[in-house]
């Protein structure tokens, strides 16, 4: 259970990215965050694992206050929270398997990991994770030799290494060809069905309808909608995205 209470983020330059946002995510939910670019979706996701420090408000993960955690506690919490990025955030020059193993850094002996020594068990785990996303044959290639869709699957494999209880996905398909969107989101859906809570920001409304169990919408840092995906009709859509917005369906591309 994730509980966000009165979360506010004001950047040093004065930009108010989030304003008094509160919501709860029960275990096993697939929560989709929608909103225009700059509406605060990325800030919200990064406040949850404190890649960005919230200005005000509290975030509880299974009743542990993330916002008050010490650096060591924070690492303990972070390693249970997988994160998937729009730009994949792989080390492009490193091998695929090294990128995947890095997801395990929060668990392994820090000194051995600094020497680049990984137990055989962890290597097997990494290959299994790559197997699961269907690119085990690319394990020893350089990450930048892979296509965008394959790179994002490496990103998912890296998150799998964390044995996550929660996955934060920041526009995981926005940098990909729309036809690849389902192939990526299906992995998240699969994990969700195994009991992992997913919080994912998305752009395409039909993807929202297809995958979300619940939706929240942000507009200029303020939560303007929370409810079932079916409740977002054309009217709501215009409210969230503004009058000029035109819905684009991924399926039509």
């Amino acid at each position: 259970m994730l509980r966000v209470e009165h979360l506010t983020k004001i950047y040093p330059n004065g930009t108010v990215a989030l304003k008094d946002v509160s919501f709860e995510v029960p275990d096993g939910e697939f929560l989709v965050v929608i909103g225009l670019s700059g509406s605060g979706k990325s800030t919200l996701l990064r406040c949850i694992n404190r890649l960005i420090e919230p200005t005000e408000g509290k975030i509880y993960w299974n009743d542990v206050d993330i916002t008050a955690a010490s650096p060591a506690q924070l690492r303990q919490i972070r390693r249970q929270i997988g994160m998937i990025f729009q730009q994949f955030n792989l080390v492009r020059r490193s091998k695929v398997i090294t990128n995947v193993l890095a997801g395990r850094l929060g668990y392994v002996n820090p000194w051995l990991s600094l020497l680049g020594i990984w137990p055989a068990e962890e290597r097997r785990r990494a290959l299994a994770a790559l197997e699961r996303v269907g690119i085990a044959d690319k394990a020893y290639e350089r990450a930048d030799a892979l296509s965008g869709g394959q790179q994002q699957r490496v990103g998912i494999a890296r998150a799998l290494m964390q044995e996550p209880r929660l996955i934060l996905a920041d526009e995981p398909v926005a940098s990909l060809d729309p036809v690849l969107a389902h192939s990526i989101l299906q992995y998240l859906e699969e994990l969700n069905k195994e009991g992992v809570t997913v919080i994912c920001s998305l752009h395409f409304l039909d993807l929202v309808h297809r995958y979300a169990t619940r939706v929240i919408a942000l507009k200029q840092g303020v939560k303007v909608f929370e409810g079932k995906p079916q409740e977002i009709d054309r009217q709501r859509f215009k409210e969230i995205y503004g009058e000029e917005a035109q819905e684009v369906r991924a399926a039509s591309l």
Partner: peptide, 24 residues
């Protein structure tokens, strides 16, 4: 990007440097 990703994994500062900075 990779720094952010490894911090999010729960890696400590040195591990982040070793795996996200050094290869670059």
């Amino acid at each position: 990007g990779p720094l952010e990703a490894l911090q999010a994994c729960g890696a400590n500062r040195l591990q982040t440097v070793r795996y996200a900075v050094v290869p670059q």
